[in-house]
Amino acid sequence: MLSEVSVLPYIFRRILQFIPTFLLATLLAFFIVQLAPGDFLSQLKENPSVRPETVERLRKEFGLDQPIIVQYFYWLKNFVMGNLGQSFQYKRPVNEVLPGPFMNSLILVIIGTVLHFAVSIPVGVYSAVRPYSTADKTFTFLSYIFLGIPSFFFALLVIWGMLKLQQNFGWDMPLGNKTSSKLPTDISWWRSAWDVFIHALAPTIILVLRGISSESRFIRGQLLEVLGQDYVRTARAKGVAENQVVYKHALRTALIPTIAGLGGLLPALIGGAGFIEVVFNWPGLTPLQLTALGNQDIYILQAVTAVATLLYLVGNLLSDVLLSVIDPRIRYH
C-alpha cells in the first residue's frame, strides 16, 4: 500500500516539530515546580543529613544559585546527558530512583494498550455490523456505566469484591502490590513473572475499561458511518463479499481516528493509572510523584513530568507515522 512517497522524511519533520513542544512543556513544569515556596539551596544547606560536598556538587551541577531560567538550562543539559538530579528523600540520584516505578507503570500501560485495542476493535466492529442487537445494546449500557464510575471508586469496589471472594470461597486473590508476599524468594523467573502478571491484571483491566467503553462506541459510530458511504456502496455493486466490504473497504478508513488516538492513549494510560496505583498499592510513578510532592523533592517531580511528556510525544509520533501509512491523503500535505 505504500506509494513512492517515503515515510522517513515525514517522521523526521514530525520529530523536529516535537522538540520545541518538549522544551516548552518541560520548561513550564520546571517553572511551576520552582515557583513552589522554599529556596532549595538554603534548604539543602540547612538540612543536616546532606553532606556539604553533596551540596556543593549539586550547586555546581544544577546552578542552584543562578536565576531560574539558567537553572532550567542546567537541568536540560543534564537531562540530555542522563543526569536527572538528586532525590532529597532517598538521598540517591534520581536515575536510580526512577526506573523501578517507571517500569512498573509501564507494565500496566503496555498490557493496557494491548487490551485496549484487542477488546474495543472487535466489540466496535460487531456492534456496527449488528447495530441495535441485544449484544449491541448491552455493550452501550455497560459503556455508560464504566464511563460514569471513577476509576478509584471502581478499584475499591473490585478490591472489596475480591476480599469477599477470598473470605467466602477461600480463593487466593492478588490483593494489591506487585507481588505476593507469600511466595518464597528463590522461585523461577517465569513463576515470578506470572505472579506479577496476575497482580497487574485487576488494576490494568480497571485502567482500560473506561477507554475500551468509549473507544468501542466510537469505532461503532465510525464504522456505521463509513458503511453508509458511497464508496462502500460501489464495492457492494462490484460484487465484493460482505465481510470483505467490512474489513477491507470500510474498517481501514473507520479506524483512522482510532489510530490517531494512539498518541493520546499512552499518556492517558500513564496518568489514569495513577489513581489505580494508589488504591492497589501498585508501586508505579504516581505514588512516587505523590510522596515527592509531599516532600518537595523537586528533581523527582521534574523528572517524572519530563518523562511522561516525552512518552506523550513519542506516542503522538507513533500515531502520526501509523496514520501516514494507513491514509495516503496525509502524506501529500
Binding site: M1, Q229, D230, Y231, R233, T234, A235, A237, K238, H249, R252, T253, I326, D327, P328, R329
Partner: peptide, 14 residues
C-alpha cells in the same frame, strides 16, 4: 454493473 451519481465520493480514498 452500476455507476452512481457522485464520482467524488464513490471511490475508496485509501
Amino acid at each position: 454493473s452500476m455507476i452512481f451519481q457522485e464520482p467524488m465520493t464513490s471511490l475508496n480514498p485509501v
